[in-house]
């Protein structure tokens, strides 16, 4: 890694540590009661409480986030590809999808629970719904952004549609796919938590509601940290994939 990259990482880590330190100091100096805001250390110690069943809740939320997200990526990219292959399909379905996109997805969650009953699979569907559109729309845009002269070049060689798709359109759309995927990471975590909030029997979001009743703020804060951690892991995975598959210059920032 270059010196500049190390510098960036060092700065980022330092700022994060500073943030935790300020939080800690603020709680102590301001004499903030535990049930309002615990110190970072106090939140961390709740991990040692066996009754909290952390592993179970963490696993449930992780499944929902990753499951819904991966499903949204696969289905979103597939739909976008179908739309570029069939103009009729695009003309028929795109306006409907744009309308559906206007529905606040969070408001759909109670309906999904009515339809599918609560559980991990329902929260996966909710996560999917919320992540699907940005991935679809970004991919569709990427597939359309082809230099017309590049198409001329391929057509002058009597290249077929499949060649245009595999050699030019799809690799050209890759940066846009990742751009949509990055937007969707934040939504994925929110989707899973919303599902758990509305009705569930496990997961970090559900756990937060339960601990809230007992005003165990330290456990709530820890749950929030873990949810964030899942989001960061997802985002990190997407960035790693992008680095592996997209040439530096082609990345959409």
């Amino acid at each position: 890694m270059s010196a500049a990259a190390w510098r960036k990482i060092t700065i980022a880590v330092t700022v994060h540590l500073a943030f935790v330190a300020i939080w800690w100091i603020a709680v102590i100096v301001g004499d903030v009661p535990e049930y309002i805001l615990p110190t970072p250390w106090l939140a961390l110690t709740t991990l040692g409480e066996p009754n909290y069943n952390w592993a179970r809740h963490f696993a449930a939320t992780t499944q929902e986030v990753f499951g819904g997200y991966i499903l949204a990526t696969v289905v979103g990219v597939t739909f976008a590809v179908l739309f570029t292959w069939s103009r009729r399909l695009d003309e028929a379905l795109m306006p409907l999808l744009i309308t559906l996109n206007m529905i606040p997805k969070v408001a759909m969650a109670p309906l999904f629970i009515v339809w599918l009953r609560f559980g991990i699979q329902t929260n996966i569907v909710i996560t999917f719904t919320i992540c699907f559109f940005p991935i679809l729309l970004n991919t569709a845009r990427g597939l359309r952004e082809v230099e017309p002269e590049l198409l001329d070049l391929v057509r002058s060689l009597k290249g077929n549609r499949w060649q245009i798709f595999t050699k030019i359109q799809l690799p050209g759309a890759l940066p846009y796919i990742f751009s949509g995927m990055k937007v969707a990471t934040v939504l994925a975590v929110a989707g899973a938590i919303v599902g758990e909030f509305i009705q569930s029997d496990r997961g970090l979001g559900w756990f937060m509601l339960v601990t809230q009743e007992a005003l165990n703020t330290d456990a709530m804060v820890m749950a929030l940290l873990l949810v964030t951690l899942i989001g960061i892991a997802l985002y990190g995975a997407v960035i790693a994939l992008e680095r592996a598959f997209v040439v530096k210059d082609a990345r959409v920032e």
Partner: peptide
């Protein structure tokens, strides 16, 4: 051969970035 015997160069290089 119209498929094989034409090479094209445009104002933009149009190289594939990836």
């Amino acid at each position: 051969d119209p498929a094989r015997d034409i090479g094209m160069v445009f104002q933009q290089p149009l190289l594939l970035k990836w």
